[in-house]
Amino acid sequence: MDESGIMDGPPVDLQQMLQARDARVERQRSLLEDNPHSSLLHVGLRIAGPVKTGRALEEVFDQAVNRLHQLLEAGLLDQDVLHLPTGPEAFLVSLMPARELKEDMLDFEGYRPFCTLMDLDVLTLENGRLVKISREDLGRVPRPCLICERPAKECARSRRHRPEEIRSVVETLAGSGWEY
């Protein structure tokens, strides 16, 4: 049991993660269909292992989402924040153009140490298809690993780092809180 509350949520399995992904895609599509000519910011967390949440982690997540809400407030059309066993998620629908929103989110990653744990996906709907704006679309380098600075996808795919090592970094970043 995690006494700090950072990672004290219930463990989840692959089936739950797949169901959460399917529900997320449907929610993204629905929000964009309901708000044509908008961009969608989906906020999640980069948490490896079976435990994806905890009291303290959700509190810091909520503080980060509140900050994003403040930054996007003028053009914010809709928002939804969910606290699920598979991890907290936020959906923010904005009038800001997708590429501009993605640039702002890349800057936001450096705002606080906790922000490096956040997945800040920007999506649009083009011809009925969800399109995610990537770092590479903007000429940026791939997202670095939390541990070694190699591309994060490369490390995740190869399982380069031990789960305990990853969890330690996540706990440190989440434990730093929102203010420092």
Rank of each mutant, 00 (worst) to 15 (best):
L77C: 11
L77I: 08
L77K: 12
D78K: 07
Q79H: 13
D80L: 09
D80A: 11
V81K: 07
V81M: 02
L82N: 10
L82E: 15
L84G: 07
L84A: 09
L84P: 11
P85D: 15
T86M: 12
T86S: 12
T86Y: 04
G87L: 09
G87Q: 10
G87I: 12
G87T: 13
G87W: 10
P88Y: 07
E89L: 12
A90I: 09
F91P: 10
S94A: 11
S94E: 01
L95I: 01
L95M: 10
M96S: 15
M96T: 15
M96D: 10
P97R: 15
A98E: 07
A98Q: 11
L101T: 14
E103I: 05
E103P: 03
E103H: 13
D104S: 11
D104Q: 12
D104Y: 01
M105A: 05
L106S: 07
D107A: 13
D107F: 11
D107I: 08
F108K: 10
F108G: 06
E109Y: 05
E109M: 09
G110H: 12
Y111K: 10
R112N: 05
P113I: 06
P113E: 15
P113R: 06
P113A: 12
C115Q: 13
C115L: 07
C115V: 11
C115F: 08
L117R: 03
L117G: 05
M118C: 08
D119W: 14
D119R: 14
D119M: 06
L120P: 12
L120I: 09
D121S: 00
V122P: 04
L123H: 11
L123K: 14
T124L: 14
L125S: 10
E126Q: 12
G128V: 03
R129W: 13
R129A: 11
L130I: 09
V131S: 06
V131L: 09
K132I: 11
K132D: 03
S134Q: 02
R135Y: 04
E136K: 10
E136M: 09
E136A: 08
D137F: 04
D137P: 03
G139N: 02
G139D: 00
G139I: 00
R140L: 01
C145D: 02
L146W: 04
L146F: 06
I147K: 00
E149W: 06
E149A: 15
R150D: 14
R150C: 04
P151D: 02
P151C: 02
P151I: 02
A152L: 05
E154A: 07
E154H: 05
C155K: 03
A156L: 00
A156P: 01
R160P: 00
R160H: 13
R160Y: 03
H161P: 14
R162M: 06
E164Y: 01
E164D: 09
I166T: 01
I166W: 00
I166C: 01
V169G: 04
V169Q: 07
V169A: 04
V169T: 02
V170K: 01
L173N: 02
L173V: 02
